[in-house]
Design a protein around this nucleic acid. Structure first.
Length: 775
DNA sequence: CCACTTCCATTTTTT
DNA sequence: ATGGAAGTGG
């Protein structure tokens, strides 16, 4: 066992060994916060605290995983396994799975992601016949989200004249009713959105003292990382759980609070000392990460904020190079500058791609950067943006799986009831939805007893609905004996989902097919990993995992070191030797949306602080004078943050004579390694492959060693295969029932000779004939 | 009911 | 610029 106490400075050590009572660790950027947290947990365990009695809440699942691994090196893997560690959302989702029935939720409740929630709100707004321009679903959702994060239930909303008045003033008097409907519909669907996971946990702990006591007793020691970014709902959960033993340890840095937009309340950390008795305060102020120049530069910026705790971050590290500032004319040029700079640094200093990160304010900025990196052939990876699991084909496939786990999941049902198309159109779905709401049952229940209700559907439609429901029930039966992978494979095959995607021969279409296959591989992989860890490998748990996964979570060990591209928000907690912060322009960073109030602007400044303090050796700041926004070229002003850094920490790379720079880059384009005409012609064509190679492939990578095995199992021909054998009685949509006389060919070309009662013997290509096996 | 066309908003950040 | 949503004609 390593002697971890030796690796700590005095203030770190004090925080690690302090045992009982409430404590706050104010940890400056790069001050070894994670180290303190991990060693503290390890230390507790060494001092005979049972791992079962420790709860550690982190900001990302990745952070939890890494911390667990590090703890394992101190206390051993078998002990570390018993720790309960994860994000608020995943930890309390698990608790709600086992305790949710107190609240009337099934243990297999669905987790609605943002898209599901928006869709549900859209249909509610439509059904209520409200103006969708006034009630923008996204805005309504964020309003509801803020209610939930502040623990304002529907009832509380109606008891609060101020809120009602505010919504009236905003021309949205029906907000309360929408909120009410939304909550009802989620409940009926057995679904929780992200905010519900916290809100319902609060409800659980408040309404059921026995449950509260159970978890209070279990979690004798509670640790919360990134406390500056907790919202009110999370704050209350922590308080409730820690109330009995008061062994609450929160870690954070008020200067790095950057999630106010999703309800994070910086007051939680600022007021911690008032919330608990006899709080011990620990300050970690020595920065081990960055050069002195970077630390000082960052300090000089954050000083401009008024709201902050008293703390002085300093470092013993070398002075280091000054922060370099580069102005370019266009965003394309900005990209090229960065690509060139990274390329040069890699060559001159023998560095790997993983030594570099490019950080931006908005995801949209990644385009130009990516283009530039590609042209220089620099391996990179984009984090965030549209994740694998949000792609349409993936959500469709998951829709079926969700539906068979929780048939009441309305959003999943609406997604797949007519996909692939089976002639159940919008008007039918509307009728079903209205009737289901009227009878206060789910659409699935309605469909199961279609004959009990008079829905004025014609018999053809009724038949189609019957077929659909029979199919889903069939899946449910299969799910009882098959594992998650087998079920998914079965579903994909039976629904002919892949076949439908294959009809589209475009590159996008092909990649969609590949994505679905990757999903199946991913499920297989998931099962194996979970088995190894002796953890839940059910389909239900896979779906939960997927719902709460972030981009980093699919980050399998990559063979090639890559330059990381991500938003600054995503970069929180990470560090890189070389960091490029791009797009330092007014209205972009700080964002145009965030300049109305002092507090918003201060949050932008903290965001900039976070960005700058990611760098270990060298930071680059770049900005462009023109940039495409909404398809239009606009002029940009340099960001005020550039002004705010004390000049003595900066070095301007920009040549004073503008024309000289302009020529330099134009020349590079014409005489560089890639001829200009090629660039011009390729550009539009490249767009599509670009997306494919980076956003899809890279984001979701099953380990290489498994790929071979799984590829074979999930080969295309396998998915074509109909399972039809000679002697089967099959049903054809046009010809009715018939007996299979013989089969010939295989895979996509497989044909069957079938004797139909109606039309006699026919030879059909199985790929196209819509056959269902009757017996 | 569906395929095709046109129109529209989108870009702040995410569990 | 781009993709999703709504509208229109078959």
């Amino acid at each position: 066992m390593i002697n971890y106490l030796e690796n700590l400075n005095e203030s770190q050590k004090a925080a690690v060994v302090h045992k009982e009572g409430p404590m706050i660790i104010i940890a400056g950027a790069g001050s070894g916060k994670t180290r303190v947290l991990t060693y503290r947990i390890a230390h507790l365990m060494n001092k005979d605290v049972d791992a079962f009695n420790i709860l550690a809440l982190t900001f990302t699942n990745k952070a939890a995983r890494e911390m667990k691994n590090r703890i394992a090196t101190v206390v051993g893997a078998s002990e570390a396994k018993n720790l309960w560690m994860g994000t608020f959302h995943s930890v309390f989702a698990r608790i709600l799975r086992s305790e949710g029935e107190h609240l009337g939720f099934p243990s297999n409740f669905t987790i609605y992601d943002t898209q599901d929630a928006v869709r549900l709100l859209s249909s509610i707004i439509k059904e209520m016949q409200l103006d969708k321009d006034r009630y923008k679903p996204k805005q309504v959702l964020s309003r509801i989200s803020s209610f939930k994060n502040s623990l304002i239930t529907v009832k509380a909303y109606y008891n609060n004249p101020e809120l009602i008045e505010a919504d009236k003033m905003a021309q949205r008097p029906k907000m309360g009713e929408i909120y009410h409907q939304y909550v009802e519909r989620c409940f009926k669907a057995g679904a929780m959105d992200f905010d519900d996971l916290l809100l319902r946990t609060n409800e659980l702990l408040t309404r059921f003292p026995a449950v509260l006591a159970k978890y209070q007793n279990r979690f004798k020691y509670i640790l919360v990382d990134e406390y500056q970014d907790t919202n009110h709902s999370q704050y209350l959960i922590v308080r409730a759980l820690a109330d009995r033993f008061q062994n609450i340890c929160v870690v954070g840095d008020d200067s790095q609070s950057i999630y106010a937009f999703r309800g994070a309340n910086i007051q939680n950390i600022l007021n911690f000392q008032r919330d608990y008795d006899k709080v011990e305060i620990f300050k970690l102020e020595q920065n081990y990460r960055s050069s002195n120049n970077i630390v000082q530069a960052a300090n000089s910026v954050i000083e401009k904020n008024k709201t902050k705790l008293d703390k002085e971050v300093w470092t013993d590290n070398d002075e280091g190079a000054k922060v370099k500032v580069m102005r370019t004319y266009t965003e394309g040029e900005e990209g090229r500058f960065i690509a060139n700079s990274i390329f040069d640094n890699m060559m001159n200093l023998q560095l790997k791609g993983s030594d570099f990160a490019i950080l931006y304010r908005t995801n949209a900025q990644s385009r130009a950067l990516e283009d530039a990196l590609r042209k220089k052939d620099i391996k990179h990876k984009i984090y965030g943006g549209l994740s694998f699991y949000q792609r349409k084909e993936i959500k469709d496939t998951l829709g079926y799986l969700r539906l068979l786990i929780n048939p009441n999941d309305e959003e999943a049902l609406k997604r797949v009831i007519n996909y692939p198309m089976r002639g159940i159109g919008a008007s039918t779905i509307d009728k079903l939805s209205v009737a289901a709401n009227h009878y206060k049952i789910s659409i699935f229940e309605l469909l199961q007893n279609l004959n009990k209700y008079d829905l004025k559907l014609n018999s053809g439609t009724k038949n189609k609905l019957d077929n659909f429901i029979t199919m889903v029930q069939h899946f449910q039966i299969e799910a009882q004996t098959k594992n998650a992978f087998e079920v998914a494979e079965f579903v994909v095959k039976q629904t002919r989902l892949i076949k439908d995607l294959e009809k589209d021969g475009t590159p996008e279409g092909v990649s969609r097919v590949e994505n679905v296959q990757e999903l199946l591989n991913g499920i297989k992989d998931f099962i194996e990993v979970q088995k190894e860890k002796e953890e839940d490998d059910s389909l239900a748990f896979f779906l939960e995992d997927v719902a709460l996964a972030t981009d980093f979570d699919s980050d399998k060990k990559d063979d090639t070191p890559r330059v990381s591209l991500m938003t600054i928000h995503l970069a929180k907690g990470l560090e890189f030797p070389y960091v490029y912060i791009v797009g330092l322009e007014e209205n972009l960073f700080p964002s145009a949306m965030s300049m109305n109030t002092r507090s918003e602007l201060e949050e932008e400044r903290r965001l900039f602080y976070v960005a700058l303090t990611r760098a270990e050796k060298q930071a680059y700041l770049t900005y462009a004078q023109t940039r495409y926004r909404w398809g239009k070229l606009v002029d940009c002003e340099p960001s005020r943050f550039l002004e705010e850094i004390d000049d003595k920490f900066l070095e301007y790379l920009t040549v004073k004579e503008p024309a000289a720079m302009q020529n330099k880059f134009i020349n590079e384009d014409i005489f560089g390694s890639v001829p200009q005409n090629k660039i011009r012609f390729k550009k539009p064509v490249q767009r599509t492959p670009i997306k494919k190679n980076t956003t899809q492939k890279i984001e979701f990578q099953p380990p290489k060693n498994l790929k071979k095995v799984t590829k074979a199992t999930v080969s295309k021909s396998n998915l074509f295969d109909n399972n039809i054998v000679v002697g089967n009685v099959v049903n054809h949509t046009k010809f009715g029932n018939g007996e299979v006389l013989s089969l010939e060919g295989s895979g996509a070309n497989q044909k069957a000779e079938i004797r139909f009662a109606s039309v006699g013997v026919k030879k059909l290509l199985l790929q196209f004939a819509k056959l269902t096996i009757i017996s």
